[in-house]
Each structure stands twice: as C-alpha cells, then as structure tokens.
C-alpha cells in the first residue's frame, strides 16, 4: 500500500495503461506540464510523441481524438477544464457519441475526455461547471466522476480500456485528498455504485465532490440520523440497482449533485426511483443541486453551489425532521 493524492492516482492509472498498451496516448492542452496534474510526469516517462501538447483548438483536439480512436488508438484527451467540453461539443456529442451507431457497430471510438470540473475556487461561470447532465443526455457517451483517489485510479483504468468514449470529470475540490492505494493492479468496472456509508434512516445519492460533503454531513448527523451515502461513481452506466435497494431499505432519499438543477442528474435519478421504488417511498424524492444560474465567481459562488450547511439541511428535510 502507498498513499496517493487524487491527481496522482489519475496520472498513475494513465501511466499504467500507457505502459500496458502502446495504443494509448495523451493529447490536449498543456498535458506535458499539466496545470491540474492529471497527466503530470507522463512526458518524462513516455516522451512527447505519446504526450502531445496541442494548440488551444478544442475542436481539433477532440476531433483528432475521435479520428485516431476510430483508426485503432485509445487517446486520452485532456480538455483541462471540463467546461471546455462545450467548446469541443460538436466532436464529443455529434461525433464521438454517435460514430459506433453510424458505423453500424463496426467502428468504435475508444477514448477518454478528461476535464477538471466543479466549483470551489471562485473561477466563475466558464471554469466551474460540471457538465454531467449534458453528457448523460447524449446516448453513446459514458461518464465517470470519481469522488476519491482510490476510485479515480480504478475508474480511469476502466475508462481507458472501455471501447466507448468516456467523459472523466475529476473535481478540483478533491485534489488535496490522499488515500491508500494498493500496490497491485485494480480496475473499477464502470457502472458499479458504492455504498460509501451504511445507514437506515435516509439515503443520500451524491455525485463527485458532493459525496464528500454528504459523508461529512452524515458524520455530523450521527446520533440524530443514520444516513446511507451512495456514490454512483459513474452516471453512465448508472447502477440503479444499488440505489433502489437502498431506497427500499430507508424509504427516504435525497439526491445531491453539483450540476445545475433543471433537467439535471438528480431529476433523472429521481424519476428512475419513482419508476422503480415508488411504493417504498415515505416522502417525495428530494434533490439539492446547483441553482439554475451561471456558476457565480469569487465570494458569490457559495450561493449557487451547494455547501455543507445546505447538505445537512437537505438530508434532515428528506428524513422528515
């Protein structure tokens, strides 16, 4: 066992996969220096031919990723901020997501779109988004959002090996997290939620960094409420089985997600709970998300993105207290 930081768990996963499969390469903006550290150190190990600093042309980077993937490679495309997936949207949503279908299942697009996501640093509307719902809404894409270093490493390895385009959003606020990582190899299959904390009174389904806020809230509510925290880890595929099993046990559920509320991740999960476990609910499914607003910057950010006090309040409300 060794301790790894969140970012280092990601870079180690990429390095292991690059060593394992010569078809894996990294392309993106500043991937050699890696301002968000996810690809740091790779150029020293694998050279600039496999860790390619590209121009600030998101369409070209993402399009080249799709083309190379269709031609048999497994690129990891680093868009730096996850927000920039909007700049690359034509290539991600129209192309990567649909090429397998358009090619009648004969040509896949195995690639990873990597982006640092979410708020916490007051960076404002163009650098603080976590565009999860948009990805979920586009059939053909998968979506992983690890909430800790262990999951980050295992999910990244699965994402690189997957035969589909996988968006991998890692959260800025998770960067300081450190965790014990096994020396031996492990892969976390996409589509397996994890019960991060067991409880009996209320289920919290939380995504990405919100998992950590939910766990902290659960701790603070100890003695008052027994809170079960579920991290889907990947939103596509979505492990509804684990969520539904929990809801059937606690009969109450709140979904906490950092993307904006309207037509969001929480709305989708809530509806699936309604379809699959309505008779078990003692209260309507509730949700806590970012406000339907651009993500405010600086001191105003906390009024848009859920913070710990609101998370605690949302769990209490869902639990009926």
């Amino acid at each position: 066992m060794k301790e790894l930081m969140y970012w280092n768990a990601i870079s180690e996963a990429i390095a292991e996969e690059m060593a394992r499969d010569e078809k894996v390469f990294v392309i993106g903006e500043n991937v050699q220096e890696s301002p968000f550290l996810a690809t740091k150190g790779l150029v020293q190990q694998f050279g600039p031919e496999r860790v390619m600093d590209a121009p600030l042309s998101e369409l070209a980077i993402a399009g080249a990723t799709v083309g190379a993937a269709m031609a048999g490679y497994r690129p990891v495309c680093d868009l730096t901020f996850a927000d920039f997936i909007y700049c690359a949207a034509d290539e991600v949503l129209m192309k990567a997501a649909q090429q397998y279908f358009i090619h009648n299942g004969e040509v896949g697009v195995p690639c990873v779109f990597l982006g640092v996501a979410g708020g916490g640093f007051g960076n404002g509307p163009e650098h603080s988004r976590i565009p999860a719902a948009m990805v979920m809404h586009n059939p053909g894409l998968k979506l992983a959002m690890p909430s800790n270093p262990y999951d980050a490493k295992g999910l990244m390895k699965a994402a690189i090996r997957d035969n589909n385009p996988v968006c991998f959003f890692f959260h800025k606020k998770c960067m300081p997290m450190k965790q014990a990582i096994p020396d031996e190899e492990y892969v976390i299959p996409l589509g397996q939620a994890e019960v991060k904390r067991s409880g009996t009174d209320v289920t919290v389904v939380a995504t990405s960094y919100m998992v950590n806020l939910a766990l902290e809230a659960a701790k603070q509510l100890e003695g008052k409420l027994s809170v079960e925290v579920i991290d889907p880890r990947t939103l596509v595929p979505l492990d509804m089985e684990t969520i539904v099993a929990s809801v059937k046990k606690t009969n109450r559920v709140v979904i906490i997600d950092e993307d904006t509320e309207c037509c969001g991740v929480a709305a989708e999960i809530a509806q699936q709970i309604n379809e699959q476990a309505f008779d078990y609910l003692d209260a309507p499914v509730s949700r806590l998300c970012a406000a339907n607003s651009p993500i405010a910057g600086a001191a105003m950010e906390k009024y848009v993105i859920p913070q710990l006090p609101q998370v605690i309040k949302a769990i209490e409300t869902a639990a009926g207290i």
Binding site: A64, T65, V66, G67, A68, A69, E91, M94
Partner: peptide, 15 residues
C-alpha cells in the same frame, strides 16, 4: 465535419 476527424486519421496514420 471531416477536417478535424481527418486530422485524427492522419495522426493515427503517422503513428
């Protein structure tokens, strides 16, 4: 649509 995808095919071809 083809320009950037072709850059990707070209990249694969070069590799």
């Amino acid at each position: 649509s083809g320009f950037v995808l072709s850059a990707g095919y070209g990249l694969a071809a070069k590799k």
